[in-house]
Design a protein around this nucleic acid. Structure first.
Lengths: 267, 267
DNA sequence: GAGGGCCACATGTACCGACAAGTTCAGCGA
DNA sequence: TCGCTGAACTTGTCGGTACATGTGGCCCTC
């Protein structure tokens, strides 16, 4: 039987719990530059001594910073301060006949940024998920073509992109369902078969990764995903739905709307 | 001195740690509908019995689900499955002279959705933060006007919106720096003073909330923020920079690009 | 010099115990 | 009836211990 010293003050200026004090102190030191991005924090046992707290308590504090996305931990190595180099994507420029959104566009973008692109690719036929079938305006469960892309930058998993085409479209453009790249780009290929994309509807949201996504993109706790759903329309109906998942902290999506001649070339 | 039974298998088909098994099992049950949104999970001690694990281990498992944004916990009550009613924002329609992005637009939108809007408002003059001054193309630290809005939906904190105007703009449109609403909307007010916004540049990203944001928006762990930066331009230069932070899981931002006549009124 | 084994140290998992503090409700008393 | 108190739940915090497991470097051997 033992007695622990717990918090005593119950007034308004409540002392935060110890694990939070640890988190706050370390967060301040990280923000102040004492621990710059890429550097390593002291070990749990060192911090335990410094804060006069048990290793469990220190771990809770570090856990807060991990779930804030400030640091990562790796077994055997320690805690490292994360760096945040963001990658810019210009969404409103992505797709047109001259600059289709295709593997090539991605390759070009990444290469221009001085990084090394790499992607894996897969084609499947399967019933469309509910949210996709609603957007493609087809019956739930109707067959659709999924063209799936898993993209890397400098061998770091970067994004997954799943494009669904409604089943009826395959009748008119059979190569959609065939494995392998479409060299001229799907947008161009469809246009050549009389299906021209004239507009699209984008939806953006954020959420924490599902276990699947965490595995595919090798993200740990504290890294939110940026979700981008693009539904493309011909003059008469929806013809595709693309769902892209990014690491939200490493990507920024841009839209240019209206007259931006004043923006010039800078930035 | 005691001995614990720990995992033994070291082969490829590695058994996941127990806390993860707990998380996976509960996640499946939530997905399956056994615990629908709004319902409560069994208590830690019940789960402890069911999974033959200590309360700490069960807590770790639940912590995984919390940081995935699937559940929330409240002291004295238990764990509740979160619901995800998303709120739609049409970004590409937001701003023009007839439908300015103003408190009114927000009020209208929320009321139309059958919810109750409420907002607090504040005006300040202060040096522009670095990221803002870059976008407004003014010297870092130059004075700027901040018009800050904290918005609620049904008394739930929903978003914060900070709009910065460059200091030089105040000379031509002094009411910007005065506290209180500008009834006709700032866009209209600026247009009446010869400053017309002809285009804007949007940047979207996601990250975990800072402690400040967590406080203002009352979000717990596992809820990512959706960040929206909009820089508005006149014909010759940037005239404003709006930074909006949303709960990423409860909001969806939409963009309409090109000809969407096929989309019709539905959805 | 190259390779392997081993040790030191990092975090990861799992258990135990105790007490603090928020919520609900039955039950008691004015 | 109303209001308060306390019991019985809940989760939150903090401490301890033991052992598993990943990493890197030292050192010995071949």
């Amino acid at each position: 039987m033992y007695r622990q010293v717990q918090r005593v003050r119950h007034d308004d200026g409540m002392t935060p719990p110890k694990y939070r004090q640890v988190a706050d102190a370390l967060r301040r030191e990280i923000d102040s530059g004492k621990y710059p991005p890429g550097s390593r924090l002291p070990s749990e046992s060192e911090l335990s001594g410094r804060f006069d707290a048990s290793r469990n308590t220190v771990r809770s504090g570090l856990g807060v910073l991990v779930s804030e996305g400030l640091i990562t931990s790796s077994q055997g190595l320690g805690y490292e301060v994360r760096s945040h180099e963001v990658f810019e994507l210009n969404a409103s420029k992505f797709e047109n006949l001259n600059f289709p959104q295709n593997g090539d566009a991605y390759n070009t973008d990444v290469t221009n940024a001085g990084r090394r692109p790499h992607q894996t690719f897969r084609v499947e036929m399967l019933p469309a998920p509910k949210d996709v079938s609603e957007r493609l305006r087809i019956e739930a469960g109707t067959k659709s073509v999924l063209r799936f892309c898993h993209r890397y930058v400098d061998d770091v998993p970067w994004s997954t992109q799943a494009t669904y085409y409604p089943g009826w479209l395959v009748e008119e453009a059979p190569r959609l369902a065939e494995p392998g790249d479409i060299a001229e780009g799907t947008t161009r290929y469809l246009a050549d078969h009389g299906i021209t994309q004239v507009g699209y509807f984008d939806e953006l949201s954020a959420r924490m990764p599902t276990p699947d996504e965490a595995r595919l993109l090798e993200v740990g706790a504290g890294v939110p995903m940026l979700l981008w759903m693009r539904t493309g329309y011909s003059e008469s109906k929806p013809i595709r739905c693309t769902i892209t998942t990014f690491r939200g902290d490493l990507n920024r999506m841009n839209y240019e709307i209206g007259d931006l001649s004043a923006r010039g070339e800078s930035l």
